[in-house]
């Protein structure tokens, strides 16, 4: 199963895996952008003093955190076309990953904002800041320090979760490994190879984010571990 021949067969077909890697990176990067945008907006909505907006935040977070990602993606892939919206498979993947991860990020942002002492907001008001200004200049920068570490985990999770594209013929790394290995019947080498490739994506992401976090702690006078 892990003989030299198996590895040779895999090397001959390296282009297939390279294509898969490219698609996985593309889906992850775009998904991440969508997740961040949705997460920040929805997270802030979770603390604004307008009740319907907070309800919107609750609905979004609870619904998308508590249903399986695969179910959501199947709905976008098979269900939406019946409602007249047939998105390309990459868009389905980005949408699925972005909306799902966005729900987790929203919760992280909300918790981060709430972790900043109330007195900070009151102090900002007393200095004549409007609500949006207080958020932008006083609260969010402080919340960011609390937000960064769990956010990193979400980035890494999103990259790993991108493998669900394989279930909707998404031409990602997992899909190509599935198709290639089930045709060649060489499961071992294929999955070990893509596990290593996923590590190549996730480890640098985690490392980079950690370094960023440390720099920010230094800037903001936090303790440097």
């Amino acid at each position: 199963m892990f003989g030299l021949e198996s590895w040779q067969t895999l090397l001959v077909d390296w282009r297939i895996f390279a294509q898969g890697l490219a698609q996985t990176v593309l889906a992850s990067v775009l998904g991440l952008a969508l997740a961040l945008a949705l997460g920040v907006v929805m997270g802030v909505l979770g603390v604004v003093p307008v009740r319907p907006l907070r309800w919107l935040n609750r609905f979004y977070v609870e619904f998308f955190q508590n249903t399986p990602l695969l179910t959501q993606v199947f709905f976008y892939y098979y269900g939406l076309p019946r409602l007249g919206l047939r998105l390309p498979v990459l868009a389905v993947g980005v949408m699925g990953l972005g909306i799902y991860t966005g729900a987790y990020i929203a919760e992280i942002i909300r918790a981060g904002i709430l972790s900043v002492h109330r007195g900070q907001l009151e102090a900002a008001f007393s200095q004549g800041f409007r609500y949006e200004e207080a958020m932008r200049y006083i609260i969010l920068p402080q919340a960011f320090r609390v937000i960064m570490p769990p956010l990193t985990n979400q980035f890494v999770n999103l990259i790993k979760n991108s493998s669900i594209l394989s279930f909707i013929a998404g031409y990602d790394l997992m899909y190509h490994a599935d198709v290639w290995s089930s045709y060649n019947l060489l499961y071992g080498v294929a999955y070990v190879t893509i596990a290593a490739l996923y590590l190549c994506l996730t480890l640098p992401t985690a490392t980079l984010a950690r370094r960023l976090e440390r720099r920010m702690q230094a800037t903001w006078g936090g303790s440097v571990s």
Binding site: Y78, P81, R82, R86, V89, A169
Partner: peptide
């Protein structure tokens, strides 16, 4: 079959 029905 679902993919055929949904035009995928």
């Amino acid at each position: 079959l679902a993919a055929l029905q949904s035009g995928r």
